Lab assay of single mutants.
Amino acid sequence: NITNLCPFDEVFNATRFASVYAWNRKRISNCVADYSVLYNFAPFFAFKCYGVSPTKLNDLCFTNVYADSFVIRGNEVSQIAPGQTGNIADYNYKLPDDFTGCVIAWNSNKLDSKVGGNYNYLYRLFRKSNLKPFERDISTEIYQAGNKPCNGVAGFNCYFPLRSYGFRPTYGVGHQPYRVVVLSFELLHAPATVCGPKKST
């Protein structure tokens, strides 16, 4: 009989979020998941679920829940969905086509923008091939755009693969920082350890 609540607040209220190319993952297990707390949290810009209804989450049990978190621009949030393409979905964070879970995003301009620009948040701009679902690539190898080998030196046709967002408070909404948490639900042939409040007695 599990009684402790799942530590969703640790994920959602973290002081610093990860850059999207180096997205953070927390495994959540052996706890009671009260999703209504999240669902009623006012400032969400997006709360979209795939393969599961957000209002039914509290009735369900899962083997594991993974909480992935990172920061992207407002106009990139739409790429955090199954079957998407674009710089983020291709080179930074890719969801599987059969994704079961929820994508939760909110504007973090007050936290993550600075006058003069916040350059701490990076994304991958160049990559030889697209990421596989949930693949994480933190390499900083110089990207070779031409035929000539770069030998690890940036220059003509040789690019550092990461780019900084440089968030400023005055940017338009599409270019403002958004914090994103992706909850993915794993249902294995194993005992369920993460259940909603109704199922955990």
Score class of each variant (00 low, 15 high):
142 I>P: 06
189 H>N: 15
192 A>V: 13
126 F>T: 04
44 F>P: 13
121 Y>W: 05
140 T>V: 10
112 D>W: 03
2 I>C: 11
58 N>M: 10
143 Y>V: 06
37 V>W: 13
16 R>N: 15
178 Y>R: 03
55 T>Y: 13
24 N>G: 08
136 R>Q: 10
75 N>S: 15
52 V>S: 05
43 P>A: 09
14 A>M: 09
63 T>W: 09
200 S>Y: 14
55 T>S: 14
196 G>A: 11
118 N>H: 06
153 V>L: 13
120 N>L: 10
54 P>H: 12
60 L>Q: 12
75 N>A: 15
165 Y>S: 01
33 A>E: 06
185 F>S: 03
5 L>K: 14
54 P>L: 14
154 A>W: 06
30 N>D: 13
39 Y>K: 15
7 P>D: 14
10 E>I: 08
187 L>H: 13
3 T>N: 11
94 K>I: 01
12 F>N: 03
1 N>M: 10
149 P>K: 10
147 N>P: 11
105 A>Q: 05
149 P>E: 12
93 Y>I: 03
135 E>M: 08
147 N>F: 06
189 H>R: 13
152 G>A: 11
31 C>I: 05
41 F>P: 09
2 I>N: 14
36 S>I: 05
144 Q>P: 08
201 T>F: 13
51 G>E: 05
72 I>C: 07
156 F>G: 05
94 K>A: 08
132 K>V: 10
15 T>S: 15
60 L>D: 09
155 G>C: 04
49 C>I: 02
96 P>F: 02
68 D>S: 03
64 N>W: 09
75 N>M: 15
163 R>G: 15
158 C>F: 02
57 L>G: 06
78 S>M: 09
30 N>V: 05
138 I>M: 13
101 G>Y: 02
2 I>G: 14
66 Y>I: 12
177 P>S: 06
147 N>R: 06
34 D>Q: 07
145 A>I: 05
168 R>T: 04
105 A>K: 06
16 R>H: 14
65 V>S: 06
183 L>D: 00
22 A>K: 10
111 L>K: 14
24 N>K: 15
190 A>Q: 14
98 D>G: 09
16 R>F: 10
88 I>S: 03
85 T>L: 07
71 V>L: 06
39 Y>T: 14
31 C>E: 07
183 L>Q: 01
198 K>V: 14
86 G>D: 01
37 V>Q: 15
90 D>H: 09
133 P>N: 06
194 V>W: 10
118 N>I: 04
128 K>I: 08
115 V>Q: 12
87 N>T: 15
59 D>G: 11
178 Y>L: 11
196 G>D: 12
25 R>G: 00
63 T>G: 11
51 G>Y: 05
77 V>P: 01
127 R>I: 01
85 T>I: 08
44 F>A: 12
122 L>N: 10
25 R>L: 02
71 V>F: 01
13 N>L: 08
164 S>D: 04
77 V>E: 02
131 L>C: 04
1 N>L: 08
198 K>Y: 13
63 T>L: 09
83 G>P: 01
125 L>H: 05
14 A>N: 09
35 Y>G: 08
47 F>C: 08
10 E>D: 10
5 L>F: 12
152 G>N: 13
157 N>K: 02
100 T>C: 12
147 N>A: 07
57 L>S: 06
6 C>G: 05
116 G>A: 12
29 S>N: 12
164 S>F: 05
13 N>M: 09
84 Q>C: 08
155 G>Q: 11
121 Y>M: 09
5 L>I: 13
196 G>H: 11
171 Y>T: 04
137 D>F: 04
49 C>D: 00
154 A>R: 11
111 L>W: 13
172 G>F: 01
116 G>K: 10
106 W>S: 05
193 T>N: 13
123 Y>D: 04
19 S>A: 06
22 A>C: 09
6 C>R: 05
124 R>P: 00
124 R>T: 00
175 H>N: 05
142 I>D: 00
53 S>K: 14
125 L>D: 01
121 Y>S: 06
31 C>W: 05
155 G>R: 06
1 N>V: 10
85 T>K: 12
51 G>V: 05
184 S>R: 09
142 I>A: 05
151 N>D: 13
13 N>K: 09
78 S>R: 12
127 R>W: 02
96 P>Y: 03
181 V>F: 04
163 R>C: 15
28 I>P: 01
83 G>T: 06
69 S>W: 05
121 Y>D: 00
68 D>C: 03
69 S>H: 04
76 E>A: 08
115 V>F: 10
66 Y>K: 06
73 R>D: 08
49 C>N: 01
100 T>D: 05
20 V>H: 00
2 I>A: 14
80 I>K: 01
169 P>G: 05
80 I>H: 01
151 N>P: 09
13 N>C: 07
52 V>L: 11
87 N>E: 06
21 Y>D: 01
91 Y>N: 08
114 K>A: 13
168 R>P: 00
122 L>H: 06
78 S>I: 07
126 F>V: 06
81 A>D: 04
111 L>I: 14
32 V>A: 08
107 N>F: 02
169 P>Y: 05
72 I>Q: 02
198 K>W: 12
107 N>M: 04
121 Y>A: 07
124 R>Q: 00
150 C>D: 00
38 L>H: 04
85 T>G: 11
146 G>P: 00
121 Y>R: 03
194 V>C: 10
117 G>K: 02
67 A>V: 11
125 L>F: 08
74 G>S: 04
132 K>W: 08
123 Y>I: 15
181 V>R: 02
134 F>R: 08
110 K>W: 07
159 Y>V: 00
196 G>E: 12
166 G>C: 04
81 A>W: 07
16 R>Y: 12
184 S>A: 09
132 K>N: 11
156 F>Y: 06
162 L>R: 04
17 F>Y: 08
3 T>R: 11
110 K>A: 10
179 R>K: 04
200 S>R: 13
60 L>I: 11
10 E>R: 09
53 S>T: 13
51 G>A: 07
180 V>E: 00
106 W>E: 01
172 G>M: 00
191 P>F: 09
125 L>M: 12
103 V>W: 01
119 Y>P: 09
33 A>T: 09
90 D>I: 05
10 E>A: 11
197 P>G: 14
167 F>N: 00
24 N>Q: 14
83 G>Y: 10
94 K>M: 04
61 C>N: 13
118 N>D: 07
118 N>R: 05
78 S>A: 14
129 S>D: 14
135 E>Q: 12
160 F>G: 10
9 D>M: 15
160 F>A: 14
102 C>G: 03
112 D>Q: 02
134 F>H: 10
144 Q>F: 04
1 N>W: 07
145 A>Q: 04
40 N>V: 07
48 K>E: 09
123 Y>Q: 10
126 F>Q: 03
178 Y>S: 05
103 V>E: 00
91 Y>P: 01
12 F>D: 01
152 G>V: 06
146 G>Q: 02
109 N>R: 09
149 P>N: 12
111 L>A: 13
38 L>E: 02
64 N>Y: 13
115 V>G: 09
26 K>H: 09
180 V>L: 06
86 G>H: 03
37 V>D: 11
192 A>P: 14
186 E>K: 10
83 G>Q: 09
10 E>H: 08
70 F>E: 00
